[in-house]
Design a protein around this nucleic acid. Structure first.
Lengths: 139, 139
DNA sequence: ATTTATACTTACCGAAAAGAGAGCATGGGC
DNA sequence: GCCCATGCTCTCTTTTCGGTAAGTATAAAT
């Protein structure tokens, strides 16, 4: 029995025009990518990282994906990319205020996930054990 | 110049063991999918929907993806699936409290995206116009 | 007997994303 | 002269994703 107050609260949100909706969805879609999330997390912890450093801190990422993801972040103004004209090249990445704000916004999801980890795992176990044939109310 | 207070606040979050991190990432990754987002949104607005109803409310979704997405949501305990043993079949979906909680958590991201839409668009325009050659501080 | 409605499931196919790995530019150290 | 380090970029291959379309079950209506 879902909480009706929470539902009402959610419904009361500023439901704006579909154009904004699309942009918001796009942003969320872009940001919610696996590597993007990880990079943002890393960059909140180390406020400044070189390319190779990020590669080391992102176990499993390929150079290609790292470059691609960083470029997308830069494009959206979430990180800055500073190139030092030296040899061998030195490039530093750091979150902007915008990026930090996004990280903070995502913390809500993060905290929710942590707080409800056990419930989710229990649900998964129950699902794997076979869905229970629910008796419908009006039968 | 990123705000150091915000950064400190973010760093102070309960950084737990990597197992939780992985689950959290997985959940966020799963949820951040395009259709999942949309379905959760729809289900916060209509507290109970049949399969065909959802298909109509999700313009462009295929039966396959709708089924798949709903199954994933059910598996994680975010929606309930009630089958009425009638012919033709009648199946109802509704968010659980867990699902509602997640919707609420995601609202933070939604609001951030809305609030920062213009900054992001500006950043994109600037990026498209060619990245400015930043003068590094120690050159 | 045939059609209709509903909620799937399955097989197939093309597109898109991701991974692997080689190549490139260049100035300093040996 | 040659190698190294760094941060890419490009190409090729593989994997995954998602759409299309057809099939299934069943009872009621025609």
């Amino acid at each position: 029995m879902p909480d009706p107050d929470l539902r009402r609260e959610l419904r009361a949100l500023p439901e704006t025009d579909p154009a904004i909706d699309r942009l918001v969805e796009q942003i969320i879609g872009r940001v919610a990518d696996k590597w993007t999330m990880l990079l943002i997390e890393i960059l909140t912890e180390h406020d400044c990282c070189r390319f190779g450093e990020l590669a080391r801190l992102c176990p499993g990422i390929s150079q290609k994906m790292l470059t691609q993801t960083l470029r997308a972040l830069e494009c959206d103004g979430l990180v800055t990319r500073t190139v030092y004209p030296v040899v061998p090249p030195r490039v530093e990445y750091r979150l902007t205020d915008l990026g930090l704000g996004l990280a903070k916004a995502f913390c809500g999801v993060w905290l929710w996930a942590e707080a409800n980890r056990e419930r989710i795992e229990a649900a998964r176990a129950a699902y794997a054990a076979g869905r229970d044939p629910v008796t419908p109310p009006g039968s």
